[in-house]
Design a protein around this nucleic acid. Structure first.
Length: 165
DNA sequence: TGCGTGATTGTTAGT
DNA sequence: ACTAACAATCACGCA
């Protein structure tokens, strides 16, 4: 029931932290060409839904088979990076387990984490947002390289890990 | 023995 | 603009 509809009244958490409060100083000037990035991302977007889409390493969502869309299961396909909340969850989980060793299920932890997450201030969350943003950037790059490799020759399996360099 | 589930929010991609 | 679905984690349950 909590399903709160996205009301415009609230700004919701800004996907991209405002530059004013954005702790970019940590990395210096991370801001570069957002337009270009967006463009590239859009270009990749088509590729993804067309050929890659998502392998679902394991049972990420619900059995990862909700619709069994004949995914190629590309082992090299970059998965979606965890969001800021997930990073916070990792940290929160450790603390939560210490305080609540009885609770082992992540379900309960998720609830507690979500509750605390809402109580956290933007400044506290922004640091996680920063991490998530940086991670996403890396993911974007990985995706670009992944697509590039595909276009190059589609190695697919052949090289498991080892060193193809 | 092994996979599916459930819960959290955020982020992305597609319609 | 909105919707939908997926991202990790981990104990438990069912076949």
């Amino acid at each position: 029931m909590p399903k709160k509809k996205p009301s415009k009244s609230e700004k919701s958490v800004p996907s991209s932290p405002p530059v004013s409060a954005a702790p970019t100083e940590r990395s210096g000037m991370v801001l570069r060409v957002k337009s270009s990035e967006k463009m590239k991302r859009l270009a990749l977007m088509s590729r993804e839904s067309e050929e890659e889409w998502r392998p679902k390493s394991g049972r990420s969502v619900k059995t990862a088979a909700r619709g069994k869309k004949n995914v190629k299961l590309d082992a090299k396909m970059p998965k979606k990076p965890p969001t800021a909340f997930f990073y916070f969850l990792e940290d929160f989980r450790k603390d939560y387990q210490e305080q609540n060793p009885d609770v082992k299920s992540m379900r309960d932890i998720g609830k507690a984490c979500g509750e605390k997450w809402k109580t956290m201030t933007y400044e506290e969350k922004v640091q996680y947002y920063d991490i998530a943003t940086e991670k996403r950037r890396e993911f974007d790059k990985a995706m670009a390289e992944y697509v590039k490799r595909k276009e190059s020759g589609e190695d697919e399996e052949t090289e498991d890990d080892s060193n193809f360099e």
